[in-house]
Design a protein around this nucleic acid. Sequence first.
DNA 1: CTGATATAGTTAGCAAGGCTAATTAAAACT
DNA 2: AGTTTTAATTAGCCTTGCTAACTATATCAG
Lengths: 148, 148
Amino acid sequence: MGKLNKTAMNKTEELADRLHSTAIHLLRQVRVQDAATGIAPARLSALSVLVFGGPISLNGLASAEQVRPPTMSRIVDALESEGLVRRRTNEQDRRAVVIEATEKGAAILWQGRKRRVKFLARHLSRLSAAERRQIENAVRAIQKAMTK
Amino acid sequence: MGKLNKTAMNKTEELADRLHSTAIHLLRQVRVQDAATGIAPARLSALSVLVFGGPISLNGLASAEQVRPPTMSRIVDALESEGLVRRRTNEQDRRAVVIEATEKGAAILWQGRKRRVKFLARHLSRLSAAERRQIENAVRAIQKAMTK
DNA sequence: CTGATATAGTTAGCAAGGCTAATTAAAACT
DNA sequence: AGTTTTAATTAGCCTTGCTAACTATATCAG
């Protein structure tokens, strides 16, 4: 993949290309681990915002997850019916709801997160300490490059 | 995110965690670029296999994309009706079809790929050469860690 | 060579997750 | 008080994943 026109790409573009494809493959493997939680991906991701970030409004959650409110409303419906989150009305602004993870939701999320991190760490542990340091530096650099 | 239980994680697990979240954010931003092609993501991805890998059977394409044949059959239907790919019957085995990208499909894909790579490269170009070298090394290390 | 079995692909039908447009209820602002 | 804005939901669409069931062709056993 991507061999044809390499000649037309400069070095930075080649790096961009490899970085992209590496990210795709990395996440593809991790997703298999997440499937073991039994929670569908969008739901798991929203739940994780709630567990790590605390209670938040529906619109806040939607924008944290970069989806539209109706999409998030339905995701929260599903999480709620599985007993993983809870809706409260915000008494300061009765139009708004506050969504929070239940104990059960938090427990399940921590489990899944642990599985995912251990899976990745198991792979990373096969590298040398120097290689891991390289990845660490690269992660910092990528974050720097991508934030505005 | 991920601040709560860091104490319970060792260094490699922390790295795994940051790597994971960096990959997610990277791809989320790139996806916005891909949307500009006007082709839905699964279709774009299948088309890219055809353009970079050449003609292939439906089952082959499905397994390259890690989806089931019925899913791919429908994706190919959509691409075909947009004139981006073409189905041929394999004359050696008349049960099988061979799917190939049309000129139009290839052209659109190259455009989109160029946009995506340039977008990423634009961000990477704000880093120092040393930082880009770090990313390069890290990409290699990650691939090594994740294969097999 | 014929009947059974295996393989390639499609069709039908379900679920998840994305969207916009329209609606409802509450808040905020003339 | 009446209008406008805002938070969330509902309705209805599309895409993309799946399994089960079907069709057509190929292969294999006797």
